[in-house]
Simulated assay, not measured.
Amino acid sequence: MTSITDRGWTLHYTIGTILASPVTAGDLVPMPAGQGDLIISGGRAPVRSKDTGAVFVHDPADNQSRKREIRPGALGTVWISAAGGWSELTGGKGAANPERASTPAQGSGSRPASSMTFVELTEDAFLARFKPVPNPLSNDAGFDFGDGGCLFDAYGPELDFVRGQPLEKVWTVIEGDDGLEITDGMHVVNRLGYLVTEQPCPTDTMVSVPLDM
Rank of each mutant, 00 (worst) to 15 (best):
P134C: 05
E123Q: 15
A82Q: 14
R100C: 09
A96F: 11
V209S: 00
P46L: 04
G94E: 02
L19N: 07
E168M: 13
Q199C: 06
R191W: 03
R71I: 12
K169T: 15
P200Q: 00
D6P: 08
P60T: 01
L127I: 07
A113T: 06
E175I: 09
P112Y: 03
L180M: 13
E198C: 02
A61L: 13
K131L: 11
P98W: 03
R7H: 14
F56V: 15
I80K: 00
T103M: 09
V55S: 02
V209P: 02
S138D: 11
F161S: 08
R71N: 11
G109E: 01
K67C: 15
P202A: 01
P104V: 04
G8A: 07
S110K: 11
G109I: 02
M31E: 10
I182D: 01
V188P: 01
I15D: 13
C150F: 02
P157A: 11
M116L: 15
T2C: 14
P210C: 06
G193N: 04
S81I: 07
M116W: 06
I80D: 00
K93G: 09
G16E: 01
I70Y: 05
R71W: 08
D37I: 09
G156V: 09
A101H: 13
P134L: 05
P202W: 01
S114H: 06
S115L: 13
T205G: 04
D147M: 13
R7N: 15
A105Q: 13
W171V: 02
I174F: 01
I182L: 06
N139P: 04
V196H: 00
V119S: 04
I70H: 05
F118K: 01
G156W: 03
F118D: 03
G142Y: 02
V133E: 09
G148M: 03
T17Y: 03
Q165N: 06
R68G: 09
K93L: 14
S108Q: 15
R163W: 05
K67N: 15
D124F: 05
T197D: 00
L19E: 09
A82R: 08
R48G: 12
F143G: 06
T103Y: 09
R163N: 08
L89Q: 15
Q106G: 09
D184P: 02
D140W: 11
G179D: 10
E175A: 14
S65P: 05
T24A: 12
L127D: 04
L89F: 10
